[in-house]
Design a binder for these strands. Structure first.
Lengths: 101, 101
DNA sequence: TGACTATATGCGCTTAAACGCATAGGCGGT
DNA sequence: ACCGCCTATGCGTTTAAGCGCATATAGTCA
């Protein structure tokens, strides 16, 4: 349960959920790209990605001056299932359209 | 997305998630029963159920001196899907066993 | 080396959540 | 009417989250 709580907490922030939606396609994105799309300041974005990383949801990779984040490919099936459902629900919600586009 | 955020927030508390797991079978339970199972004080349990109700996840019904809560039967499919995944993941997690049993 | 870009982090502030305690209110039984 | 059980809620306190600002760190290129 602790794991689930941690997961729910990680996803209960608009910036973090937005980042997850962006990364849901499996591709990687640098912090600056995420900032742009999510309309976040640098420190805010960095910290939120740190939270997602800490929660094990994403992994990062240094690439020259950039740090590229992507969904953790090694997530347990139960976590994947939750994320899939959440992404589907959020994507269907109109609020996110402007930010994803 | 706001809806999803609200849902994630509602589920990111051990007492609330525990209550949801208990109610996942569709049956109703009074606050005192929930208190027992989840090891919560009265005011804490009542307030948490209030949060779940506010989030639209549960509905309540007065029955004599008791207030019986049950899962909201009218949840949108996307929300149901999330809950189902969450319940499955949490039930599989060993931490909850002692509390559910 | 120095300038520039990208990212992380220390610090202080503000706000919201959660809690316990006490109390109010609804309901049934005597 | 009174008492006892169940639930909700006002209040004050504590704790944690999120933020911006400034600064540190890492890498690139000239």
């Amino acid at each position: 349960m602790n794991t689930v709580i941690a997961l729910m907490s990680a996803l209960s922030d608009p910036t973090r959920l937005g980042a997850l939606l962006l990364l849901a396609d499996g591709k990687e994105r640098c912090v600056c790209k995420l900032m742009e799309h999510l309309n976040a300041t640098q420190s805010r974005m960095s910290r939120h990605m740190g939270v997602l990383k800490q929660a094990g949801l994403v992994v990062d990779r240094r690439d020259a001056q950039w740090v590229r984040y992507r969904l953790n490919p090694a997530l347990p099936p139960s976590t994947k299932a939750i994320i899939k459902a959440v992404v589907a629900a959020a994507a269907a919600s109109e609020d996110i359209e402007g930010k994803v586009a």
